[in-house]
Write a protein that binds this DNA or RNA. Structure first.
Length: 737
RNA sequence: GCCCGAGUAGCUCAGUGGCUAGAGCAGCUGUCUUGUAAACAGCAGGUCGUGGGUUCGAUCCCCACCUCGGGCUCCA
C-alpha cells in the first residue's frame, strides 16, 4: 500500500490494517464506527433547535384538540392508515408498530405535545419522551403551532433512547457539580448504547472507581426528585454570563458555528428545579423522573475536543435504557462479549501469548494456535492459487532508498521501526509489503499480455503503533498480511474488481461469516492525484462490483485515500458485532512512484493501475476475530484437535490408540488420553478445550468396532461404527461446519 | 504518546510496614480402573513486574521504568 496520507495507517488499504480498535470489553462494537446513515427515525442528538416556528396561536386556553389523519405512512403490516378519519381523535396505532410514533396534524386549538400525547392515550403519554414537530425534535412541553405535523417519540425507539441517554448525562453532570464543587463541565452526548460527560476537576483531581458509586447515588436522588427540565433561551451575552465560571461552556458558545448555534443570537439552556443549568440544544425528557435505568461504567481520560494538544478531561461513561429489562439485557451482552474476549480465550485454550520479554504488541504462537493459523493460511494459499495469484516472498528489511521511492519515509515514518545501520546503509523493518511487490513487477519488461498480474504474499510487517493503541491481536506491532497487489491495465480494472469482490466474500463465507456490509470511499475533494478519468473508472469499477454482488454499502464521500478509491468490507459476527476485515483499494500513485510500465498492444509503454487488497487484513487480527466469533469453539476444519478418544478403562487404551492412528492416517487431528482418571473428568477437560468430537470407547466398542460419539453441542450417541464416524467427520470438515 | 487503573505460583485470586507469603485449579508422583462435564492422597511450585529511594526493616510507602486493561471517534 501506498502510505499516502498521514492517516494512511488508519484509512487502511490492503496493507493498512483495519484501524479498528476492537469493541471494548463492554461489548460495544470493536470496529471503529463508520459513517453510516442514520436509521430512519433516529434523529441525532441536537443541542440547539432551530428557532421555534413562529406560531401566532400560542393560545394557552385552547383545550380542544383536533387532529386528522396524516395521509402518508401506512402500517407496514396491515396497510391501514396511521390515524382515523377527519376530526377523529388520533389513536395510537397497532401495538405492533415498533416505533409507536404517532403522527397528527394539529389544527384549531393548540396544546403542548405532551397534551397531545395524553389525549391519545395514557400509555403513549407515559412512554413519550420528546416530540417531532414539523420535522424538528422538541421538548414535549413545546406549544404546538397551528397546522403542525407532530409525532411523539417514545422511549423504546432509537430516537427515544438517545434522548433519555442524553438527559441522563445531564443528571450525571448535575450530580458531579454537586459532589465536586468547582468542577468544570464540558460536553455530554448520547453515544451508542449510552452516554458520557467530560469534566475537569479542581486542581487536576481525578475520579476514582468508588466515586462512581457516590455519583450514581446522587443521580438516583435527583431522578427520584423528578425535577423538570425547563428550557430557556437567551442571547449570547447572557449565556456567557450564566457560564461565567465555566470556560468550556463559554468556549462552546463562542466557538461553535454561528449559523448553527447562535445564528439569531439565541442560546438555549436547560434549568431544572435542582438549581442546575446546562447549555444545551435539547430536547430532553420532561423531567428526571423519566430516567433511572442506567449504570455508570467507567472513568477515562479524554482530550477536550479530541485534540491531544488540549487539556485532558475526565470522562465518565454510562449506559441507559428504557426499562430495567433492556438495561439487564445490555449488561448481559457485555458479559457475553467479555467471555468471548480473544485475549482470554487465547490464554485459556493455550493458543498464543504475549511474553513481556518480547516487548509490547508482539506475540508467540503456541502449537494449538499455530495449527489454527496454519490451517487458515493453508486455506488462503489454496484459494489464491486457484484464484490466479502468483506467490512471492520478500525480506523483512530493506534499505532506505526503497522507502524513499515508495514515499513511506515521507508519509509513514512515524509508523516505522527505526532503521538498523549496517555497512553505511540504513535498513528499515518493513511496515508494508507493497514496495517489494513493485520491485517484482519491475524486474522485467511486462507486456499487456501478462496482465493482470496478481502477486500474493503472506507478508509479515512491523509497525510502531503508539503504545496506548495496542490491543491483543487486534492491534499489534508485528503481524502478517494476506497481501496482494494486482497490476492491470485501466480497462481491466472493472472485471478485476468484480471478480475480486466475489473472491473476497467467498473466502470470508468459508470462515463462517455470512452477513456483510461495505463502504465505498470516493475521491477526496481536495488533494488527490490521478486524472478524473482514472478516478471515475476506478470508482465505477468498485461500485459496479458492489452492485453485482448485491452487497449493501454506504458511500463515504471523499473518504478515499488521495491515491485512489476503496471498498472496505465488514462482517457481522455471531453476537452481532461488526468488524472491518477486507479492503480493496485502487492506486494510481505507486505505479508512478516506481515508474511501472507495461508494453501495450500498440507497442508503446503504459502505466498500469495497482489494486491493493487484503482479505483477512492481518492474519493475527483475523484470527482474533474468528476466536471471538466462534467463542473459541473452532469448527472441525479449523480445530487444532478435532477428535479426542477416551478409553473407559485403561484396557481400552490400545483400541483408542489404534483409532487415533487411523484418523491421523486419514488426515485428521486426533489424540487420546490414558484412562488414569475418571472418564467424567477427561470428558470435562475435552469440553473445556472446546473440541468438536469426543469419542468414548469401552468393552462394547472394542468388541464391535464402534465408538460412542459425544459431539460438541450435541447429544451422546452410542454404538456408531468407526466408518460412519469418519464419514461424518469428513462431511463436517468438508462443509466447514 | 496522554489520562485513569492494574501487575503476588502456569491460571484465577487471598494477604501483610515485623518470624519461613496463602488457597483453588493446572503440573508432578502414587493409589483408584472408571460408559459421557470435577476420584483420593502426597509433592513441587513465588527475587510478590523491574530498578531506585524512605525506613532498623519494604511485596506493602514514594519515584522512575516495563507490561497489561479501559479511554482519548461518534462534537453542549
Amino acid at each position: 500500500m501506498w502510505p499516502g496520507t498521514p492517516d494512511a495507517a488508519t484509512t487502511g488499504c490492503c496493507c493498512a490494517r483495519s484501524p479498528t480498535r476492537s469493541c471494548s470489553k463492554s461489548g460495544d462494537c470493536r470496529a471503529r464506527p463508520t459513517a453510516t446513515p442514520t436509521p430512519a427515525g433516529n434523529v441525532p442528538a441536537r443541542h440547539f433547535l432551530p428557532r421555534r416556528p413562529a406560531s401566532p396561536i400560542n393560545r394557552p386556553g385552547a383545550r380542544r384538540l383536533t387532529c386528522w389523519a396524516q395521509t402518508g405512512p401506512e402500517c407496514r403490516r396491515c396497510g391501514s392508515r396511521l390515524c382515523g378519519d377527519d376530526n377523529v381523535r388520533t389513536q395510537p396505532h397497532h401495538q405492533h408498530l415498533a416505533s409507536r410514533r404517532i403522527a397528527a396534524r394539529v389544527a384549531g386549538g393548540v396544546d403542548t405535545a405532551a397534551d397531545l400525547a395524553a389525549s391519545i392515550g395514557r400509555r403513549l403519554a407515559a412512554d413519550a419522551v420528546v416530540a417531532v414537530v414539523n420535522g424538528a425534535e422538541s421538548d414535549l412541553g413545546i406549544a404546538l403551532p397551528d397546522g403542525a405535523t407532530v409525532s411523539i417519540v417514545t422511549v423504546g425507539t432509537d430516537a427515544g433512547r438517545e434522548v433519555l441517554r442524553h438527559s441522563t448525562s445531564h443528571v450525571l453532570a448535575q450530580a458531579v457539580l454537586e459532589l465536586f464543587p468547582g468542577a468544570k463541565f464540558a460536553i455530554g452526548p448520547a453515544i451508542e448504547n449510552g452516554f458520557y460527560y467530560d469534566f475537569e476537576l479542581p486542581d487536576g483531581a481525578t475520579f476514582h472507581a468508588d466515586d462512581l458509586e457516590r455519583i450514581e447515588a446522587t443521580m438516583r436522588r435527583i431522578m427520584d426528585a423528578d425535577q423538570a427540565f425547563v428550557r430557556e433561551e437567551c442571547d449570547v451575552a447572557t449565556g456567557l454570563g450564566v457560564f461565567a465560571d465555566q470556560p468550556y461552556k463559554r468556549e462552546i458558545i463562542e466557538r461553535v458555528d454561528a449559523s448553527e448555534v447562535v445564528g439569531d443570537g439565541t442560546v438555549s439552556l436547560y434549568r431544572n428545579d435542582g438549581g442546575f443549568v446546562d447549555l444545551c440544544r435539547g430536547p430532553h425528557v420532561p423531567s428526571t423522573g423519566k430516567l433511572g435505568n442506567f449504570a455508570l461504567q467507567k472513568v477515562a481520560g479524554a482530550y477536550w475536543r479530541g485534540d491531544e494538544k488540549r487539556p485532558m478531561l475526565q470522562r465518565i461513561y454510562g449506559t441507559a435504557w428504557e426499562s430495567p429489562k433492556a438495561l439487564a439485557e445490555h449488561l448481559e451482552r457485555l458479559a457475553e462479549a467479555e467471555l468471548r474476549d480473544h485475549r482470554k480465550l487465547a490464554a485459556e485454550l493455550d493458543l498464543l501469548s504475549f511474553p513481556e520479554e518480547l516487548g509490547a504488541g508482539l506475540a508467540v504462537w503456541h502449537p494449538k494456535g499455530a495449527m489454527v493459523r496454519k490451517l487458515m493460511e493453508d486455506y488462503s494459499r489454496t484459494r489464491h492459487e486457484q484464484g490466479g495469484y502468483d506467490f512471492v516472498y520478500s525480506p523483512h528489511v530493506a534499505k532506505s532508498v526503497l522507502w524513499e521511492t515508495s514515499g513511506h519515509l515521507d508519509f509513514y515514518a512515524d509508523g516505522m521501526y527505526p532503521p538498523m545501520e549496517i555497512e553505511g546503509a540504513s535498513y528499515y523493518p518493513k511496515p508494508m509489503n507493497c514496495p517489494f511487490h513493485m520491485m517484482v513487477f519491475k524486474s522485467s519488461t511486462r507486456s499487456y499480455r501478462d496482465l493482470p498480474q496478481r502477486l500474493f504474499e503472506l507478508g509479515t510487517v512491523y509497525r510502531y503503533e503508539r503504545s496506548g493503541t495496542l490491543h491483543g491481536l487486534l492491534r499489534i506491532r508485528g503481524f502478517t498480511q494476506d497481501d496482494a497487489h494486482i497490476f492491470c491495465t485501466p480497462d481491466q480494472v472493472v472485471d478485476e474488481v468484480v471478480s475480486l469482490l466475489g473472491f473476497v466474500l467467498s473466502v470470508l463465507r468459508a470462515f463462517g461469516f455470512d452477513e456483510f456490509t461495505a463502504s465505498l470511499s470516493t475521491r477526496p475533494p481536495e488533494k488527490s492525484v490521478g486524472s478524473d478519468e482514472d478516478w471515475g473508472l476506478a470508482t465505477d469499477a468498485l461500485r459496479n462490483a458492489l452492485e453485482r454482488e448485491g452487497l449493501a454499502y454506504d458511500i463515504d464521500e471523499g473518504g478515499g485515500a488521495f491515491y485512489g478509491p476503496k471498498i472496505d468490507v465488514k462482517v457481522r459476527d455471531a453476537i452481532g458485532r461488526h468488524w472491518q476485515l477486507s479492503t480493496i483499494q485502487a492506486d494510481f500513485q505507486l505505479p508512478q512512484r516506481f515508474d511501472l510500465q507495461y508494453v501495450g498492444a500498440d507497442g508503446a509503454r503504459h502505466r498500469p493501475i495497482v489494486i491493493h487488497r487484503a482479505l483477512f487484513g492481518s492474519v493475527e487480527r483475523f484470527f482474533g476475530v474468528l476466536l471471538e466469533h466462534f467463542a473459541g469453539a473452532f469448527p472441525a476444519w479449523l480445530a487444532p484437535v478435532q477428535v479426542r478418544v477416551l478409553g473407559v478403562r485403561n484396557d481400552h487404551d490400545t483400541y483408542a490408540e489404534r483409532l487415533v492412528d487411523r484418523l491421523a492416517a486419514e488426515g485428521y487431528r486426533a489424540d487420546w488420553v490414558r484412562a488414569e482418571e475418571p472418564l467424567g473428568n477427561r470428558i470435562r477437560r475435552a469440553k473445556l478445550d472446546k473440541l468438536p468430537y469426543v469419542l468414548v470407547v469401552g468393552d462394547d466398542d472394542v468388541a464391535n468396532g464402534t465408538v460412542g460419539v459425544n459431539p460438541r453441542g450435541g447429544n451422546v450417541e452410542r454404538d456408531v461404527s468407526v466408518d460412519d464416524f469418519v464419514a461424518r467427520l469428513a462431511a463436517a470438515v468438508e462443509s466447514h461446519v
